[in-house]
Structure formats: C-alpha cells, structure tokens
Write a protein that binds this DNA or RNA. Structure first.
Lengths: 156, 156
DNA sequence: CACCTTTATGATAATTTTTCTCAATGACTC
DNA sequence: GAGTCATTGAGAAAAATTATCATAAAGGTG
C-alpha cells in the first residue's frame, strides 16, 4: 500500500497538487517519491529565506531523516528545478523552493529575507552576448542585494 | 628591509602597478602586504577559470604557503574587491581575479572557461525593484551560463 | 492484495573542507 | 635600526560532504 502522506506534521503544510508534481517529476527520471522526499520538500517550501544543507539536516532530525538522505534529496530537487540555490548575507549556499517559473531574488544583506523578482528580460542582452562572444548562452543567474524595508535605516 | 618582490617565480607574472594597488588597499584597512599575499594574488590573476579554495591551497603548496594563509588572504582579497566569486560548471564556489571594475561573467558549463561581460545596465531594473518592493537595492550578481565556442557542437 | 524488482534509506565511516590556536616571524613606522 | 603589531604556518579541531552497505519500502505486476 502506498504511504499515507496525510500523516504529515501540521507545521509543514503542502498542497497535494504539488505532491503530484513531485511524483511525476521523480518518476520521469525513474526515481520514486518517498515520504522523506516530501518532508524535505515541505521544509524548504515553508522557508522564506532558504536553508543551507547543514541547517536542513538539523531541522529534519526531528523527523528522523538521515543526513545522507537530505543531501541526496536536495540534489535531486535542485536537478528537477524544485529548488534553486541562492547566496545568503555571508555568501553561504542556501537552497530555496522555487514557487514560480523563472525567477530571481532580492536578498536582504542584513536579515537574509528573500523576495522573488519576476520581471527580468535579459533575452536581448543574451542575444547580444551570444553575437559578441560566440557563446551559446543557455541561461543566467541573477541576484540582487540590498536592505529590506525592515532593515533599511530611515532616511534623514 | 622590505621583501624583494621581484624574486617571484617566472610562471606567476604580475605588473608592479598592481602590487602598489594591493599595498594601498591593504594599508587602508591597517593590513600589511606580504610576499604570501602577492603570491596568492598572482595565482588568481593568472587563472582564467577561477580557483576553488582547495585548488588554490594545493597550487600554493609549491610556494610553501600554508592553507590557513590561503583562506585568510582570499577572504581579504574578496573584501577588498580584488577577487570575485563565481560558480563553476558544477555549482562549486570559485574565486576569480576581477581585472576591470563592475563586471559579470559568462561561464561555459562544459569546460568552465570564463569570459567577462562588461555591458550591463540593470540600473533601470534596480530602480523599478526598489519602488516595487521597498528594498534599498545595493547591488547585484549576474552570471550567464552556456557553451563556449570550443564546446558548442556545430549546428546541423 | 501479495509478490517482486529495484530504488531509497539511515547508520556509520571516511574524506574533504574550513576554522581555530599559538609561538615565531617579519612588515612597516619612527 | 628598534619596536610594535599584523602575519604566518603547523597542527589540531570542527564542520561539511561523500561513500558504503545491509535493510526497508515504492511502485509495477499477476
């Protein structure tokens, strides 16, 4: 019998549609969806600032998920595009759930708060670069840094 | 007597003007310029793809520079803006000498070759974001990924 | 629903990367 | 040239990442 995914802890909510997306994506690679994978996904989906791998390992100890699993699952989720990597205030690698399609991030250097940025049209620039350099440009990674409204000192 | 910086190995060239820049930058922070720092800088200045910290440590063993020093100097060079961090084909953190002012990079996913990109005008976008989000946008990090001319399969 | 094949898991160990400590060295100022 | 104080490298320690392998279980099949 298939594992009952509804027995999840209340503090990690996720909609069932997303679970189906996850299952389909894993299946396409010949991989299986397991409760551990769902729990890992939920942890990231609920995080607004993203998590480092060690942070995720610590948080998931509560759910008895081993660190080897955390590393494996995070890698898979990245490859499947469910997680994106961003850089925290100290340059550390953090993983963040990508809720939309192609997005970028605005990261507060003080508190690490992250806001998604959806307007970005770099296609003109990419074409120009391709013409100038001969590279076949396949994509880009763009992050903005600054101070979020709560961390911005008031002017004056 | 001040150390003779001309006794450097022939395979790591650097112009003396840059050494003066380094000295001034370190001095401004109350730090001292040492032959080790210059050697570390030269290693990076000669690398076209950037180096990870462990790679740099291995390469600098030849010059009897301890790893603690490599980590410290790379950090300083980053803070002073002489080194930039980029992400290699496998997502690993690499440090690259910044030869110009504000630049971005076009990184080959196959061979890791890096080309600098100097045209970038994101100031309009930054202003728009600031207005939309309330963030005080201070900067950005932009990387393009693709295949360099030598790694691009010929069309057809 | 029970079976079966194959992937996934977690404990553990091993490896790699990063940080810390401290005595000795040496850069830079006067 | 002397003194001050940042710097260095060896080594230990801590932290992060990867590898191994016996056991558990997902998901297809009869």
């Amino acid at each position: 019998m298939t594992q009952d995914y509804d027995k999840r802890p209340d503090d990690l909510r996720i909609d069932n549609l997303k679970i189906d997306d996850l299952r389909r994506a894993f299946r396409r690679q010949g991989l299986r969806l397991t409760p551990q994978k769902v729990t890992v996904w939920r942890l990231f989906a609920d995080s607004t600032k993203g998590l480092t791998l060690p942070e995720a390992c610590r948080a998931l100890q509560e759910y008895a998920i081993g660190q080897a699993t955390v590393y494996r699952v995070v890698n898979s989720l990245c490859e499947l595009g469910f997680l994106l990597h961003i850089h925290g205030p100290n340059g550390e690698h953090r993983y963040l759930a990508g809720h939309s399609g192609h997005v970028h991030h605005l990261i507060c250097r003080t508190c690490g708060h992250v806001r998604e940025v959806t307007d970005c049209d770099l296609s003109t620039l990419e074409k120009l670069l391709a013409a100038q350099t001969g590279f076949a440009v396949e994509g880009h990674h763009l992050e903005f840094y600054g101070q979020c409204p709560r961390c911005t000192p008031l002017p004056g």
